[in-house]
Amino acid sequence: MSRVVGTSGRREDLGGDAGADGLVTWRLAGVAVCVAPDADLAGGSVDRLGLEERIRDESTPSDRRPAYRAGRLLLRHAVAQLGEDPGELALSARCETCGGLHGRPRVTHPVALRHLSLSVSHSQGVTAVAAATGRAIGIDLEARSDAGVPAMPDGFSTLAEWTRAEAVLKADGRGLRVDPLAVAVIEDAEGVHATIGSDRRRYRLVEPALLATHHLAVALAIDPPSG
Rank of each mutant, 00 (worst) to 15 (best):
V35P: 05
G30L: 02
L41Y: 10
L28I: 00
V31G: 08
L28P: 06
L23W: 06
D47Y: 14
D21S: 03
V35L: 14
D21F: 04
A36N: 11
A20D: 15
V46N: 07
V24K: 02
A36F: 06
C34Y: 04
W26Q: 01
G43W: 10
D47F: 15
D21G: 05
P37S: 00
G22R: 05
A32M: 02
V33K: 06
A36S: 14
A32Q: 06
D21T: 10
L49N: 02
L49R: 07
V24Q: 06
L41W: 14
G19Q: 09
W26R: 01
A42N: 09
A32E: 13
G50V: 09
L23I: 12
A32C: 09
G22L: 02
C34A: 13
D40Y: 05
G22K: 02
C34I: 01
G19H: 04
D38M: 06
A32I: 01
L28Y: 14
P37R: 00
A29G: 07
A29W: 11
G44Y: 04
G50Y: 12
A36E: 13
G30P: 02
D47V: 15
G22W: 02
V31R: 12
A32N: 07
A36H: 10
A42S: 14
L41P: 08
P37N: 00
P37T: 00
G19E: 11
R48A: 14
G50E: 11
G43C: 06
V46W: 04
G30M: 02
V46E: 14
D38R: 08
L49H: 04
A20Y: 01
A39V: 13
G30T: 02
L41N: 03
A42H: 12
D21V: 09
V35C: 07
A36Q: 11
G50I: 10
T25E: 15
C34R: 08
R48M: 08
G22Y: 02
G19I: 03
V35D: 10
C34L: 03
G44F: 07
V46T: 14
G30S: 05
C34G: 08
G19T: 08
L41E: 09
L41S: 04
G50M: 11
V24R: 09
G22A: 03
P37V: 00
R48Y: 07
P37M: 00
A42M: 10
G19M: 05
V24H: 01
W26S: 00
V33A: 03
C34D: 10
G19V: 05
R27N: 00
G30F: 06
G43S: 11
D47G: 15
D47E: 15
T25Q: 12
V24W: 01
D40K: 10
V31P: 05
L49S: 03
